[in-house]
Every structure is written in structure tokens, then in C-alpha cells.
Computed example of a mutant assay.
Amino acid sequence: MEIGKHTFSNIFKRGIKIHVMFLSGLFLILAVITIQSPDYKQVAPKAILVYLLMVACLYSGRWLGKQSPKKIRWVFLVLLFCLLTSFFSLIGIFGMAYLLGYKDGADVSGYVVITTLLVILHLFAGAIIAIIRMLTRQQINESRILQYQAETELNLLTSKLSPHFLFNTLNNLYGLSREEHTKVPELLLKLSNLLSYTLYSSDEPFVKLKEEVDCIQNFIALEKIRIGSRLVLEVNIGTYDPTINIAPMVLIVFVENAFKHAKSAVYGPINIFLKLWTDVDFLHFEIENTMTAQSEISEDKPSGIGLATTIKRLDLLYGKAYHLEHGGKDSRYFVKLKTPVNAAY
């Protein structure tokens, strides 16, 4: 079990200025109080010890507050708190006893109680500050997610699948109804499920992976009708856990873009390769398509939700826990996405 990997290096990872200002302000307050004492030269070493002890307890409590039952078990967390309390209390007690010149046999029971209570107070204060900060960040993040969800829903309501897609699909379904009418009911069901998913999936930050995979398969089935024999498609959906969570309309955006830009080739086959699988920690998604010299994958001209908005949603929902690569090379465009399977919500 990893406990606070790179803990000390992460303490000042963000908000360095805030930490410096806080430490400087606390030091100045103690310095002013110490200087006002008539015996400030004797008080100064004790004030420095108190300052270092306070800082150590606050930041240790801050680290404890950042932990959660998902990272560390409750029993282990309580044990850590007790160990830190004992450790800092002993430092404070022996440090002050030395500075105050206590001799063997002197009664320090009162000082033991006061020091222990102060250590516990500062540990709790650091933990509470960390928890409040985490909750505030979470609320801000949720507000941003709701904002982008609203934008996503608006984009879906205004564009959905492109009218061109629907027009051609319905035309092809009409042709099939005359020649191979037995296939039409199944394809109409796929179109209905696809439209239903694009309409209602944006209401939630996360959906089950199976819903997104079904949406992709329905979309591909309809595109096969549109493109016909020119389509050279390889779909490799490996072993995956259908119950894990994923942000809706993320994978389908990359699939839709792949088909849209691959079809820009006037002649020749349209090659598309799609692969999806999950392991213990991540969902892996890869898609690659042919691309002509004139075809440009632009974040300013996306279809559906759009690549730029999708990346913003990934940033908000997964933070730095996901990895995305995309770009063109040798007349082919590729996307490689990796997202954590233990998403919230």
C-alpha cells in the first residue's frame, strides 16, 4: 500500500505563494509576540520550537485530510493520527522540558496534557482545512462540469447527428425496404436507439460503458449502409467490463470524426480500424482512419459534440488521470485514448 507517494514534494505542489505567505505570517505573529516579552532572548528558542511544531502538525494534518477510505483504510488512518500525535507530543514535551530546564522528577503532567491537546488541535485544524479546500474544489469542478454538460446538451440538441447523416440513412433504408425489406426493422431499431442515446445521455456526467459501445455499434451499422462496399472496417472490441463508468458521447465523437474525414476520399477504399478494451485500471480506445491530403481534422470544425468540447469535458471529469493522443501521419489519422475505470459518480 502506498501512503502519500512523494508526500513532501507534493506539499508545495500547488499554491506556493499561499503557503509562503501563510508560513511568513505565522512566523511574524510569533516574532512580534516574542519581541514584546521582556526576556525575549530566552523566549525565542521556545517560540521557534512552537512555530516548527505548529507547522509540522498543520501540514501533517493537511496530508491526513487529503486521504480517504479509498486510499487508506479507516483503521490505518486512525492509527496514523495516533502515531503522529504521539510523535509530535513527545517532541514538544521533551523539547520544552529541555528549554525550560526541567530536572529529573519534576512534575510535567500539566504540560504533557497541554502539549498533547495543542498537537491534536493543530492536526485537526490541518485536516479540516484540507477537507474544506477539497470540497470547495469539488464544488467548483462540479459547476464547471454542469456548465460544459449544458453546452454539450445544447450542441446535441442543435446538431445531434448531422442532417446529412439522417437524410442519407433514411434514403438507404428506403432502398433496402424495396430490395431487402427484412433488414429494415433491425436497422430502424438501431437508428432509434442511436437517436435516443444522443438525446438523453448528456443528462448524466457518466454512463455505463456498454451504453457507449452499443451507440458505437449502432452508428457503425448505419454507416455501413451509407458507404457500402468501399468501407474496409476492422472492429476489435476485446474484453471489457460493461459496468464501468465513462463520460457519455466521448468515444462516439472520435468514431463519427473518423468516418466523416475518411469519407473525404473521393476514390479508393475507406479504411477504418477501431479497437477497445479494458484492464484493471484503464479503458483503452484506439481508432485510425484514412485521410486525404485535403482532409483536415480541425478542432474548430468538429461534428457532433466536437473534439475541443470533448477534450474540455475529459479535463474536467478525469483531470490528469486520462491520456489522449491524436494526430495525422502518412495519410492516416489516429486517436488513442486511455481513461481510468474507477471514475466517480
Score class of each variant (00 low, 15 high):
Thr339Asp: 01
Val50Glu: 00
Tyr102Gly: 00
Ala47Phe: 10
Glu179Asp: 04
Leu199Glu: 11
Arg144Phe: 12
Ile29Gln: 01
Asp39Asn: 14
Leu191Met: 13
His284Asn: 09
Arg313Thr: 04
Glu286Asp: 12
Thr158Tyr: 14
Leu123Arg: 04
Glu286Cys: 08
Asn172Ser: 08
Asn257Arg: 07
Leu199Tyr: 15
Leu77Phe: 13
Val335His: 05
Ile216Cys: 09
Asp104Tyr: 14
Leu161Val: 11
Gly268Ala: 12
Asn236Ser: 13
Glu211Gly: 01
Gly238Thr: 09
Lys275Asn: 08
Leu23Ile: 15
Val207Thr: 08
Leu324Pro: 00
Leu337Glu: 02
Leu307Lys: 07
Thr169Ile: 07
Asp241Ser: 10
Asn155Ala: 13
Ile132Trp: 15
Ala56Val: 04
Asp107Gly: 06
Val207Ser: 01
Ile145His: 08
Leu123Cys: 04
Phe76Met: 10
Leu233Ile: 01
Glu211Ile: 06
Phe27Ile: 03
Ile3Val: 10
Ala97Glu: 03
Ile35Val: 14
Leu324Cys: 00
Cys82His: 10
Leu274Phe: 15
Leu30Ala: 05
Tyr318Leu: 07
Trp63Tyr: 11
Arg133Asn: 09
Ser303Gly: 06
Pro185His: 11
Ser303Asn: 03
Phe88Ser: 05
Tyr59Cys: 04
Val335Lys: 02
Asn245Tyr: 15
Ile35Ala: 15
Gln294Ser: 09
Phe285His: 10
Glu299Ser: 14
Met54Ser: 13
Phe206Lys: 03
Tyr148Pro: 00
Tyr40Ala: 10
His326Ile: 02
Leu194Ala: 09
Cys215His: 02
Leu324Ala: 02
Leu274Ile: 15
Ile220Met: 04
His284Ala: 00
Leu274Arg: 07
Lys275Pro: 00
Ala247Ile: 09
Thr290Gly: 06
